[in-house]
Simulated scan of single mutants.
Amino acid sequence: MNVTHSEVHPSASLIRLKTYDDADAAPIFRSHVCDDRDDVELVVIGGDAGVIEDARDSLHRLARRWDLERRGSELCKINTADGPVPVSPETLLLAGLLEDHGIALSVDFTTGTVRRDSAEPIDPAGIPAALATDLVAAEALEAGADGVAVAVGNIVRVAGVGPYRAGWQVEAWLGSDGWRPLTLREGAVAAVRAGARTAIAVDTQAWRAQRALTALLAGDEPEPQVGALVVGGEQPAWRTAAWDQYISA
Rank of each mutant, 00 (worst) to 15 (best):
L62P: 07
E99S: 14
E142T: 08
V202R: 11
R64H: 12
A237V: 02
V231I: 06
A215L: 07
A242F: 04
V170R: 01
V87A: 09
D22A: 15
S31W: 00
A25R: 14
D134G: 10
A196G: 13
V40Q: 09
P89R: 08
R61L: 08
D36T: 12
H9P: 06
V189E: 02
G96Q: 07
R185I: 11
Q169C: 13
L14A: 01
E234R: 15
D54R: 15
V158H: 08
S176G: 05
A201V: 10
I52L: 10
D67C: 03
F109T: 14
D39C: 08
E41N: 08
M1W: 12
G47Y: 06
D39V: 06
V33N: 14
I247K: 10
I103N: 06
S248C: 13
A228R: 09
A149L: 03
V33W: 14
D24W: 07
I155N: 12
T80F: 03
A151F: 00
D100C: 01
T198P: 02
L216Y: 06
H9G: 09
A194V: 15
R208Y: 05
W238M: 13
G167H: 05
H101I: 00
S73D: 02
D203V: 03
P222W: 14
V85S: 03
A12F: 04
C34L: 14
R165W: 11
A249V: 14
D100N: 11
